[in-house]
């Protein structure tokens, strides 16, 4: 379909660390203006998948097309939100400076950010409700605030497609709401967002597409079609954890018991019909 290309099209993506496969032959087709969650158990290769798409890891096989062209040519269309824990938050820099890093690509080598970059960064901080913190040293931020800074940094990239690695991990309720609002605003603007997600409970509410992953692709498509109990069992090997969300907003990792726990509120429904996100 050359006139209606997929935003992301990955074919036969295989990744191995030290010859040990972490992703087997994954195909992925994501249409534009979609919010897609990647879910799967720990060690399923969720982060690896987006890193491979972003070219941060060299795949053993397969290719990635962004709007029908190889990734390398389309890099400017892509924005990335790494895991919050991947950097040293004690680094001597402030919020505005981190956000301006999102402009570095359009600046290219050697050129310095100037007043235009500053204005764009402030605008992005405004969108995530962090503008008052622009001059704050990054070590003074809470987990949720750190996450919003990373989101703002991706926003100033002004990309068409965003990849976010566990943006909801360990954030407070305010930040979670802010991220969801942001996701919806991005979709409204025709952007595609791919999110590595942990909380199965919120998948139908937050996203319209979902990819179930466990080393290979279990299923990928609209939430209504794909987010079924059968597929979840395939992905999680019977260890589905449908539980109410952790009340501890700051918990680093939501507890995931090993036994299947049907959610009391959603017992009768087919898993995750999008009621609120219609």
């Amino acid at each position: 379909m050359p006139d209606n290309p997929y935003a992301i099209e990955a074919t036969d993506l295989t990744v191995a660390y030290q010859e040990k496969p972490v992703l087997w032959d994954v195909d992925l087709r994501v249409p534009p203006a979609t919010l897609m969650a990647i879910v799967g158990p720990n060690g399923a290769g969720k982060t690896t998948l987006i890193k491979a798409i972003l070219g941060l890891i060299r795949p053993a096989a397969g290719q990635v097309l962004i709007y029908n062209k190889p990734y390398a040519e389309q890099r400017r269309l892509v924005g990335y939100v790494p895991q919050r824990g991947s950097v040293d938050w004690d680094f001597p820099t402030n919020v505005l400076d981190v956000v301006m890093m999102g402009r570095y690509r359009s600046l290219g080598w050697l050129r310095r950010p100037g007043s235009r970059e500053r204005a764009l960064a402030l605008e992005a901080l405004e969108k995530v409700g962090m503008a008052p913190f622009a001059d704050r040293q990054i070590s003074q931020l809470s987990g949720g605030q750190q996450q919003r800074v990373f989101l703002a940094r991706a926003l100033v990239q002004d990309a068409q497609i965003y990849f976010m690695d566990e943006p909801f991990q360990g954030v407070d309720a305010t930040t979670e709401r802010a991220i969801v609002a942001l996701l919806h605003a991005l979709r409204q603007a025709g952007k595609t967002v791919v999110v590595v997600h942990h909380d199965l409970q919120t998948v139908p509410e937050y996203f319209d597409w979902v990819t179930l992953l466990n080393v290979r692709r279990i299923a990928s498509g609209p939430v209504a079609e794909v987010f079924t109990e059968q597929n979840l069992r395939l992905a999680y090997g019977g260890r589905i954890a449908f539980l109410s969300r952790s009340p501890h907003a700051d918990a680093e990792e939501p507890p995931t018991p090993d036994l299947p726990m049907p959610s009391p509120t959603r017992r009768e429904e087919p898993y995750g019909y999008p009621e609120s996100a219609a």
Binding site: D12, T14, E19, P21, D25, A60, A61, R217
Partner: peptide, 21 residues
């Protein structure tokens, strides 16, 4: 040596999985 051997095994398995998928 091990990598070279694994490369073949890996590629063969990958082909099998690809067809299986």
């Amino acid at each position: 040596r091990r990598r070279a051997r694994q490369r073949w095994e890996f590629a063969m398995t990958m082909l099998a999985i690809h067809l299986f998928n």
